[in-house]
Amino acid sequence: MTIVDRVPDSDYPYMFQAADSASLAGQNSYVETTRWRLILLSFAALLGLFSWQFSWGEVGPIDALALTGAAAFIATLMLELNTWRTRPDKSWYDGRAVAESAKTLTWKFAAGGNPFPIDMGVDDAQRALLARLQSVKNDFPELVLSPLNAPAISDWMIEQRQSTFDDRKKSYLAARINDQKNWYTDNAKLNKRRSKQWRFTLLSLEILGAVLSLASAFNQDVTQLSSAIAAFLTAIVAWNQTKQHDFNARAYSAAIHDLTSAEAKLRLVVTEESWAREVDDAEEAISREHVVWLATRSRL
Results as ranks from 00 to 15, higher is better:
residue 1 M to A: 06
residue 4 V to T: 09
residue 5 D to V: 07
residue 9 D to P: 13
residue 11 D to M: 01
residue 12 Y to P: 05
residue 14 Y to A: 13
residue 14 Y to K: 11
residue 15 M to Y: 07
residue 16 F to D: 00
residue 22 A to H: 00
residue 24 L to S: 12
residue 25 A to K: 03
residue 28 N to I: 01
residue 31 V to A: 01
residue 33 T to F: 06
residue 35 R to W: 06
residue 38 L to F: 00
residue 38 L to P: 05
residue 42 S to C: 13
residue 42 S to K: 06
residue 45 A to K: 02
residue 47 L to Q: 00
residue 47 L to H: 00
residue 49 L to D: 01
residue 49 L to I: 06
residue 56 W to Y: 12
residue 57 G to K: 03
residue 60 G to A: 01
residue 61 P to A: 04
residue 62 I to H: 04
residue 64 A to K: 00
residue 65 L to C: 02
residue 70 A to K: 06
residue 71 A to Y: 08
residue 75 A to K: 05
residue 75 A to Q: 09
residue 80 E to L: 09
residue 88 P to I: 00
residue 90 K to C: 15
residue 107 W to P: 08
residue 109 F to H: 02
residue 110 A to Q: 01
residue 118 I to Y: 03
residue 118 I to E: 03
residue 122 V to Y: 09
residue 128 A to G: 13
residue 133 L to G: 02
residue 138 N to W: 08
residue 139 D to R: 11
residue 139 D to I: 04
residue 144 V to F: 10
residue 147 P to V: 04
residue 151 P to K: 00
residue 152 A to E: 12
residue 153 I to S: 02
residue 153 I to T: 02
residue 155 D to W: 08
residue 162 Q to E: 08
residue 168 R to Y: 07
residue 168 R to G: 07
residue 179 D to A: 14
residue 180 Q to P: 05
residue 181 K to Y: 08
residue 182 N to Q: 15
residue 184 Y to Q: 11
residue 184 Y to F: 11
residue 184 Y to T: 08
residue 184 Y to R: 10
residue 189 K to M: 13
residue 190 L to V: 14
residue 192 K to F: 14
residue 194 R to S: 12
residue 195 S to D: 14
residue 196 K to G: 11
residue 198 W to L: 13
residue 198 W to N: 15
residue 200 F to V: 04
residue 201 T to D: 10
residue 202 L to Q: 13
residue 204 S to T: 12
residue 204 S to L: 13
residue 204 S to P: 07
residue 205 L to V: 04
residue 206 E to A: 14
residue 207 I to V: 10
residue 208 L to T: 09
residue 210 A to H: 07
residue 214 L to K: 14
residue 217 A to G: 09
residue 218 F to N: 08
residue 224 Q to M: 11
residue 227 S to E: 14
residue 230 A to S: 12
residue 232 F to L: 09
residue 233 L to K: 13
residue 234 T to N: 11
residue 234 T to I: 15
residue 247 F to Y: 02
residue 248 N to E: 13
residue 248 N to H: 10
residue 250 R to F: 11
residue 253 S to L: 03
residue 255 A to H: 00
residue 263 E to Q: 08
residue 264 A to S: 09
residue 264 A to W: 01
residue 265 K to D: 15
residue 268 L to N: 08
residue 271 T to R: 01
residue 273 E to R: 10
residue 274 S to Y: 12
residue 274 S to C: 12
residue 277 R to D: 15
residue 278 E to C: 03
residue 279 V to F: 05
residue 281 D to C: 14
residue 281 D to H: 14
residue 283 E to T: 07
residue 283 E to W: 01
residue 293 W to S: 06
residue 294 L to R: 13
residue 296 T to L: 15
residue 297 R to F: 03
residue 299 R to K: 14
